[in-house]
């Protein structure tokens, strides 16, 4: 076991998969000679050459479509879209082609393409560079959506995504690439479905994913030490398909639920989990489930307003206390 930074874990997964299979390629803006905006492909251009580590033009829909087409005949592309804000431009190919081609061809064709892209609000990047788009991707049948919260997941999820025969969207976070964590020394394939109990607890379930897992873990420590509340933190590394059974299992144990998302609440991850709880285990609840979400606004540039728009540890604690009637 070694400590790796998030970007190092992603880079290692790229390197191993490209070394393992000559049909694995990666492509994106500035990923080759420059090594990637977040260094996720650093050094790979020199090792594997321009045919397999492709610096693309700034044509998101075009190169994503090209990767999907290549995947039809045995190529295993890993596409990096520099920011999810730019992934809007590739929605046509991701949704209309990659997610649907298996179905509309009656199972003849598949698009085993991996699309990685960081989202989230970083530091004062303004409205067009701060999108959180996971809720858009997870609503599309035929597309897998995963979102790592730590370097081990980032490594293992990418490895599995490359080998899985479905299109997989990996939602990363601009603020997390330098985060450190343990990654197994041996090759490791993380399951693409399910959830992880990041912290066991009995009083309340905190459902989180990606960066909000860290807010919840911090909140849980404070809740334990200052309020004697034992919170369970559930890491939803898979957003599609959501692990309904795992969600029910935790709620049936704690009887209370708070969902913590960095995105706006409307038609979001929290809304979907609340619906699942309603449908599957309403009578297990001792209190109404609650959401901690972003303000439903385009993200402002001003640093105070930006901080105001995005939830934090304090918001999680407040909502937990309210849910428990404290």
């Amino acid at each position: 076991m070694h400590q790796l930074m998030f970007w190092e874990a992603i880079r290692r997964a790229h390197d191993e998969e490209m070394d393992n299979d000559p049909m694995v390629i990666c492509m994106g803006e500035d990923i080759g000679v420059v090594g990637g905006t977040y260094k996720a492909t650093q050094g790979l251009y020199d090792k594997y050459g321009p045919e397999r580590v492709m610096d693309t033009p700034i044509s998101e829909n075009g190169y994503t479509g090209l990767a999907i087409g290549a995947s039809f005949i045995g190529v295993r592309p890993i596409v990096e879209i520099m920011s999810v804000n730019f992934a809007w431009l590739a929605m046509d190919q991701i949704f209309n082609t990659a997610a649907k081609v298996r179905y509309m061809s009656g199972g003849q064709l598949e698009a085993p393409v991996v699309i990685r892209s960081p989202g989230g609000t970083a530091h004062q990047l303004g409205a067009q560079h701060s999108a959180r788009m996971e809720k858009v991707f997870m609503g599309i049948a035929g597309l897998r959506v995963v979102t790592p919260s730590n370097p081990k997941q980032a490594y293992g999820l990418l490895k599995s995504a490359v080998r899985c025969n479905d299109p997989v969207f990996i939602n990363e976070h601009e603020l997390m690439y330098n985060m450190k964590g343990d990654v197994p020394d041996d090759e490791y394939f993380h399951p693409l479905e399910g959830l992880e109990v990041a912290r066991r607890g009995k009083d309340i379930s905190l459902f989180a994913y990606n960066i909000s897992v860290h807010w919840c873990l911090q909140a849980a420590e404070i809740l334990a030490s200052q309020y004697q509340i034992d919170a369970e933190v559930i890491d939803l590394y898979t957003l599609s398909p959501l692990d309904r059974k795992g969600i029910v299992k935790s709620v049936s144990k704690t009887h209370r639920a708070v969902i913590v998302e960095e995105a706006e609440p409307t038609v979001g991850v929290g809304a979907e989990i609340m619906a699942i709880i309603n449908e599957e285990c309403f009578y297990e609840l001792d209190a109404a489930p609650a959401r901690v979400s972003a303000a439903n606004v385009p993200i402002p540039y001003n640093h105070r307003l930006e901080k105001e728009a995005i939830p934090d540890v304090e918001d999680v604690i407040k909502t937990v206390l309210a849910t428990l009637g404290r």
Binding site: P22, M23, I25, E51, N61, G62, Y63, T64, G65, L66, A67, I68, G69, A70, S71, F72, I73, G74, V75, D92, Q93, N96, T97
Partner: peptide, 17 residues
């Protein structure tokens, strides 16, 4: 217009093989 990039991608696959 959807097939334009898909065709280029299939051609990329042919080229690699």
């Amino acid at each position: 217009g959807g097939p334009f990039p898909l065709a280029a991608g299939i051609a990329k696959g042919i080229q690699m093989k």
